[in-house]
Write a protein that binds this DNA or RNA. Structure first.
Length: 417
RNA sequence: GUGGCUGUAGCUCAGUUGGUUAGAGCACCUGUUUGUGGCACAGGGGGUCGUGGGUUCAACUCCCAUCAGUCACCCCA
């Protein structure tokens, strides 16, 4: 009989992985707390139309990567492929904008996209991200970029690069795209078939092309987006840069940086890591001033980013120390185990200690090995001798010393341990 | 969806031009120590060699298919 395996592109996190994840998660929670950001948790599934309207019906995410199905009520549902649209939905639905002029939120959770797995890419993966609603000002852009950059730095990621750009308003962009298409259409035959498709479907993506001919053509013929950005937007962007300089955040202005999702406007940024392979983007974000309105909410400026937890984990490549235990209770015989469990429970409740009791009825020697394997600080040994004498043996596993303790004194023995 | 590479013990990997009983290290278990961990030594369990077919006297080894993993493309965190 075949065993059932996990779904392609999903992953089991075994206990040795989970201790790394918990360390990263608590680092994220602590970090965002210092900026006064509040966590938001939205459902794993949503109405499909949320993503069609929010992410963009032309994007690959919506077209071919969503896990969607009709439920019994004949409603199309989708496992969330990203979290900005759901957070915006919640922001609108609960009228958070009326509660507060500014909402600074963060999230952490699983997402689903049906892509071919590879390094740094899974079908179920996790993102941590930040969304801020209410501020149109460059200071807010700088704060969000500061958070993204300094969080990754504080985690110990050294080889990271921050690139920023502005892609202007939706109108600027539409104008620029049509100009770009007009110019490049004349050189259509110079492009690979893939890039020709991009030219028709999503011309900005040409700037991501890895084809040298395409790169050269864009260098020679294509004007950069920056020329078509309005004066106000340019001032906004240069204010962001000034703020980043003041905050000593190293960045590169990459005029070719475009974002994949439709909702981005104005400031965009991306953080990459060299130690990652082909999928080198660890964090991506930007402003999306039109999205709240587009999803039926009030006109609201907003900015955010998302960072891939698995990619951070890959780039970190360090093991956080596993947790050791305080006391292992070595018990021989059922009377001893019963008593050991009572003691263990008292120690847990009274001193908040981590206490593990033998439940496998192993030999003393095996139990001691187990205690060592678990890095126990102490063993409490209860055998027939101890039961007869109404005592128990406490062994300090670091120095090997042993004490005979009266049954009634055992709890007090650990008062300062 | 397309292409490259890889599937041998729980893990990391050896396995000769096809040759009879498939190995090592780590991990696990037992013992040396009849009630004491780490170190050392001795022993032990664990594999339908991913799966199915084919070639052959003989397949872990060669061929085909399939599944899985992985890397890359597309796209994205």
């Amino acid at each position: 009989m075949n065993i059932i395996r996990n779904i392609k592109g999903s992953k089991d996190l075994l206990p040795s992985d989970v201790c790394n994840w918990q360390a990263l998660e608590s680092a994220i929670h602590n970090f965002t707390k210092k900026f006064g950001y509040k966590e938001i948790r939205t459902p794993i599934f949503e109405e499909s139309s949320l993503f069609e309207r929010g992410v963009g019906a032309d994007t690959d995410i919506v077209n071919k990567e969503m896990y969607s199905w009709m439920d019994q009520g004949n409603k199309s549902l989708t496992l969330r492929p990203e979290l900005t649209a759901p957070v915006v939905r919640a922001y609108i639905q609960h009228e958070l904008g009326k509660l507060n002029p500014i909402n600074k939120l963060y999230y952490l959770g699983p997402l689903f996209r049906r892509e071919r797995p590879q390094k740094g890419r899974q079908r179920q993966f996790h993102q941590f991200g930040v969304e801020v609603f209410g501020s149109p000002f460059p200071e807010q852009d700088a704060e969000v970029i500061l958070m993204a950059y300094s969080l990754l730095k504080s985690l110990g990621l050294n080889q990271i690069n921050l690139e920023i750009n502005t892609i202007g308003s939706q109108d600027n962009r539409a104008e620029y795209i049509s100009i770009l298409q007009n110019i490049l259409n004349d050189y259509r035959t110079h492009l690979s078939s893939l890039d020709q498709q991009r030219l028709d479907k999503n011309p900005l993506r040409l700037f991501d092309s890895k084809d040298p001919k395409c790169i050269e053509l864009l260098e020679d013929k294509a004007p950069t987006m920056y020329k078509y950005i309005s004066k106000d937007d340019r001032e906004h962007f240069s204010s962001v840069c000034t703020m980043l300089d003041a905050l000593s955040i190293p960045y590169v202005h990459n005029e070719r940086l475009v974002r994949g999702l439709d909702y981005y406007t104005h400031t965009t940024f991306e953080i990459t890591s060299k130690s990652l392979g082909s999928q080198d983007a660890i964090c991506g974000g930007g402003r999306y001033d039109g999205l709240v309105e587009q999803l039926g909410g009030p006109v609201t400026p907003a900015i955010g980013f998302a960072a891939g937890i698995e990619r951070i984990m890959l780039a970190l490549d360090t093991d956080f120390a596993g947790e050791s235990i305080d006391i292992f209770i070595v018990a021989m015989g059922s009377e001893a185990i019963q008593f050991g469990m009572q003691i263990a429970q008292e120690l847990r409740l009274k001193y908040n200690l981590v206490v593990v009791v033998e439940t496998l009825q192993r030999s003393l020697r095996s139990q001691m090995r187990e205690a060592n394997r678990l890095s126990a600080k102490y063993c409490i040994i209860i055998g027939q001798d101890e039961i007869n004498k109404a005592t128990m043996m406490v062994k300090n596993m670091q120095d090997g010393s042993q004490d005979d303790i009266n049954k009634s004194d055992i709890i007090n023995y650990f008062i300062n341990k």
